[in-house]
Simulated scan of single mutants.
Amino acid sequence: MFLGGEWGPGTAMIMEWSKWRREIASAFVQSGYPIGVVIATIVNILFLTYMGPSSFNTYGWRIYMGTGAVIAVIAFVIRNRLLESPIWSKPRTNPLTLLFKHGGAQLGAQHTIHGRPTNNLLFHIPNILGFPEGNRRSEYNTSVMLISTIAAVMAVLLAGPLALVINYRWLIIGTLAISLAYAPIALILQPSLVNLVMLAFIENFAMGARTIRTDR
């Protein structure tokens, strides 16, 4: 809920204030989510390394979850220093009225087509598949999470420059089509670290390009 609540207005603020091309600004906006996952995973690894699995599972996970308060304080300080963007302040008509009156037909389509159909699922794939067995499972899951998310960050950031060359609609549709075709291989037929990372890389191009139309 917190991610959803901050992401919408945060995206609008960046896209409306930014002097960059829409394609680059969109990729920058979308990189925040996977970068945050990378940081959280690294912090998790540090806690597990220095506390040990036994202490971490007993009480350490509470401290780990509490580190999120640091980011919450930073977000609170930034939010209280923000100014409304000129694009928001300019219209005399209520911006919500303009949105639903002139752009309502595209509103649902954009959230559907520009979504991330496999992104959140991918982060939980190791637990769903249940491999490998035994004590190595937790370490393997963490490795898949970290490497896949780093691949996602790379794809999101590359989506901006690539959208300068390829129409962003075709970039989104093409990469999602490839992801859907590749998903059965990576998730069912040949589930492996390499295939899961490749799936994360391919499907996150769409994530990096999904907010390009925000300021149009």
Rank of each mutant, 00 (worst) to 15 (best):
T214N: 02
L48G: 08
N120M: 13
I188Y: 11
L98M: 13
A151P: 07
E84Y: 12
N127A: 13
T112G: 10
P126Y: 01
N195V: 12
K90N: 09
T149C: 12
P53A: 00
G134A: 01
S31Y: 04
L121C: 03
Y140A: 08
S89E: 15
A159G: 00
I173R: 07
S89C: 10
M51I: 00
N141H: 15
F131T: 10
M1D: 02
Y33D: 13
I71K: 10
T175M: 05
A183V: 09
V43N: 02
T112Q: 14
M198D: 02
L162M: 09
W61Q: 07
R137E: 13
V77T: 08
A206G: 11
R62C: 00
S54Q: 15
A69G: 07
L129I: 12
P86V: 00
A40H: 11
V144I: 08
H124W: 13
H102G: 01
L48R: 08
A151R: 08
V38H: 03
N119V: 15
S54E: 15
Q106G: 14
V29T: 04
E139K: 12
L99A: 11
A186Y: 00
A159Y: 02
A163H: 06
G174M: 02
I14H: 00
G66T: 08
L187F: 10
S138E: 10
L187R: 05
M13I: 13
V70P: 04
L180T: 09
P191D: 07
I150Y: 09
V197S: 04
N127C: 11
N57F: 08
M145N: 14
G68Y: 09
A200F: 05
A69M: 07
H124S: 15
A159Q: 03
A69L: 10
E16I: 00
L46P: 05
H114F: 15
L121A: 06
T11C: 04
N127R: 13
R210F: 15
A105S: 15
L82R: 09
W88L: 11
E133V: 08
I24A: 03
L187K: 05
H124F: 13
W61A: 01
T11S: 06
K90L: 07
G5V: 00
I147Q: 03
L107P: 05
Y50D: 04
T49N: 09
Q30D: 03
Y59M: 07
N119Q: 14
G115T: 02
N204L: 03
L162K: 07
A72S: 11
T67I: 11
A181S: 10
V77E: 02
H114T: 13
V165K: 12
P184F: 04
G130F: 02
L48E: 02
I14C: 00
R79Y: 03
G66V: 06
M145F: 13
L46Q: 04
V38M: 01
